[in-house]
Design a protein around this nucleic acid. Structure first.
Length: 299
RNA sequence: CGCGGGGUAGAGCAACCAGGCAGCUCGCAGGGCCCAUAACCCUGAGGUUCUCGGUUCAAAUCCGAGCCCCGCAA
């Protein structure tokens, strides 16, 4: 059995970790995940999903705050890293017998970085995929072991795409690792000149630029749903647009407009979106109809 | 004690600051108009104004305490 140390912190890592456990192919010696952190308005301390799983299966957990000078208490055949969230020093990467393997939710060398799933949607890509690769000291830079492509539905959002990508990635991973350890795969160097990058997203990335076209804004919406979501300002307040769609209507750019009980916003180049569900700062989320009824005199 | 908005009819809002019959847009029920309608006209039902206490002749409104929802922030 192949012994592994699993590194993961993000929500996306949880189903993949589950799959690794369920496969029964691996001897999981240790889980490394980020420290429990305060979350939400009440700042309640919460552990990562990966840690919850580890506890459930009685797997030892380490949560170093930093990996500087950190030494793994065990060594394994392979380190598997899946959205751990911190840069892992070379000394740790090289501590495993066969090295460290990373999963990345894009068709590398495209979309290296922290937000591949969001970014492909924002850019309106038609396809994406999963890549399993060896890690080196640069981010998402190592030789590729395997890759699989997935077509993107023009209307799916980040959550839905993640839900489809995660099992694909998990399958590919548990197939690739044993083959690699058995020497059946020769790693392929990435075509570094073709590399593109995506940064970590913040709430500010969800602020809508109404001079962009409707399709651009719709893609932003898809990429940032459910987090951090897209928003604009209205009556000096933050207005989140929770559910929108493309529209053929012709309405003024950047102006919230009600027509026949439906809500529209004009975008660049005479395009428009329709808003179905929205939320004003300090208020609950409501549908377009309720919004129009309440703010009729302001629309 | 991180900052801020809010709780009023089934939904969304107004009235609160300067206390005096609780209102608007929808929805719902009934009726009318129409070839017909989610359109239009008329009528109606539906409220412990989050809870508890205080001030007052009088509290949705002012004061105090509590519960709940939400936007930031992390």
């Amino acid at each position: 059995m192949i012994s592994i140390v699993f590194f993961g912190s993000h929500q996306f890592s949880t189903p993949i970790f589950q799959k690794i456990i369920d496969s029964g192919l691996f001897d999981i010696k240790l889980v490394v995940t980020q420290p429990d952190r305060p979350v939400g308005r009440k700042q309640e301390i919460q552990m990562t999903g990966v840690k919850m799983l580890a506890l459930k299966y009685n797997i030892p957990v380490e949560q170093p705050a930093t990996l500087k000078n950190y030494v793994l208490p065990v060594t394994a055949d392979v380190n598997i890293v899946c959205k751990y969230g911190l840069i892992i020093p070379e000394s740790i990467l090289n501590s495993a017998k066969f090295g460290s393997i990373n999963t990345h939710a894009s068709l590398l060398p495209k979309y290296r970085g922290a937000s591949p799933i969001q970014s492909v949607l924002i850019n309106g890509e038609k396809e994406t995929g999963s890549t399993i690769m060896l890690m080196d000291k640069e981010m998402d830079h190592g030789p590729i072991l395997s890759q699989e492509t997935l077509a993107i539905d023009p209307n799916e959002n980040c959550f839905e795409l993640s839900e489809r990508l995660a099992p694909l990635e998990a399958e590919l991973l548990i197939k690739t690792v044993p083959d690699f350890v058995a020497g059946k795969i020769s790693p392929q160097e990435q075509n570094h000149v073709a590399a593109t990058f995506c940064k970590e997203l913040t709430r500010d990335d969800g602020k809508i630029d109404w001079t962009k076209t409707a399709i651009g804004i719709y893609n932003l919406y898809r990429g940032l749903t459910p987090w951090p979501g897209i928003w604009t300002t209205w009556q000096e307040k933050r207005l989140k647009l929770l559910k929108i769609g493309l529209s053929e209507s012709s309405v003024p750019e950047g102006k919230l407009t009600a027509v026949d009980g439906r809500l529209f916003m004009g975008c660049g180049e005479n395009t428009a979106i329709e808003i179905f569900e929205l939320q004003l700062e300090g208020k609950n989320a409501i549908d377009a109809r309720g919004f129009i009824n309440g703010f009729k005199n302001l629309l």
